[in-house]
Computed example of a mutant assay.
Amino acid sequence: MSTSPMFNARDLARIAIFAALIIVLGTVAVPLPGGVPVTAQTLAVMLAGTVLGARKAPLAVLIVLVLAAVGLPVLSGGRGGIGVFVGPTGGYLIGWIFGAFVIGLIAHRQRPQPRWWRVAAGTLVGGIGVIYLFGIPVQALVTGVDPLVTLLSSAVFLPGDVLKVVLATILTLALWRAYPRAFGRADSVHAGERTPSDALA
């Protein structure tokens, strides 16, 4: 009896597209004190989670981070090289992987069709909470600033990140209405759960 591969060619193409989206949205960055710039790359990470789901979204992020590690300028402001992982933004970058997983887990749980409140909750918890959970301690360690002070100073990012949550929710629902096949076979938490592809069959 044959077994289907974990990811088919269409899945791999979708992963590559979102990796490219993360790179493209990092071309514009606004530097801030503390070494962590404001960038739209987090929005792309959120969208990867809401569209690709918990299994595939981290792979899109991982592709970008591997390209950065080998020196390609794929991060915000054209940064790359192994040094970015030991700088102030290193924790945030690693947090992208886990954040994308959590976003996909919440956004795709139980129902194939995205519900705005699940998408919003996923991007809020995974796209802000999880990424901050990894990023703030590393930033505090690298910069030598007290973690509480670093946490408070990170409040400057919150309005922009909340805006990204809103945009990610709107864009995800709009994409579902316009082209549900973009979601492929959404990651299921429970065996036998219907997926967007099943719904279209």
Results as ranks from 00 to 15, higher is better:
G122N: 12
L163H: 09
T123C: 15
P58E: 11
A155L: 15
H190Y: 12
R177S: 08
L133H: 00
Q41I: 10
V38A: 12
T143E: 13
I15N: 07
K56R: 14
I128T: 04
V30T: 13
I106C: 02
S188H: 00
A16S: 12
I63Y: 03
P180M: 05
P88M: 05
G90H: 13
I136R: 11
F183D: 11
G34S: 13
G34I: 03
D161Q: 05
G87Q: 13
T42L: 13
V70K: 00
L158N: 07
L124E: 05
L158P: 06
P31W: 10
L173V: 10
I128Y: 04
A100R: 11
G135I: 01
A16N: 09
G126L: 09
A60M: 01
V45R: 06
K56W: 01
A57V: 11
P114K: 05
G49D: 03
T89S: 15
F157H: 00
V145T: 12
R111K: 14
V28M: 12
L72Q: 09
Y132H: 07
L105Y: 11
R185M: 02
G192Y: 08
V70W: 00
P180L: 07
R118L: 13
G35T: 04
A54L: 03
T89Q: 13
T39R: 04
I94P: 02
Q110M: 03
L200D: 12
A69H: 04
P159M: 13
V102F: 02
I15E: 03
P33T: 00
S188N: 01
G144F: 07
T27K: 07
A186W: 00
S153R: 15
G95Y: 09
R55M: 08
A121F: 05
L52G: 09
I23E: 00
L124M: 14
A20Y: 01
G90V: 11
F157E: 03
G90L: 08
T143R: 10
L75E: 01
V125F: 10
L133P: 03
F7W: 12
A100Q: 03
I22D: 00
A40D: 01
N8M: 07
L200P: 08
F183V: 06
T123L: 07
Q139A: 14
L133C: 08
A140H: 01
P58F: 06
G53C: 09
L72V: 13
F98K: 11
L93A: 10
A100S: 15
F134S: 09
P33H: 04
R10N: 06
L62D: 08
V45K: 01
A201L: 11
G160M: 10
A48T: 01
G77L: 08
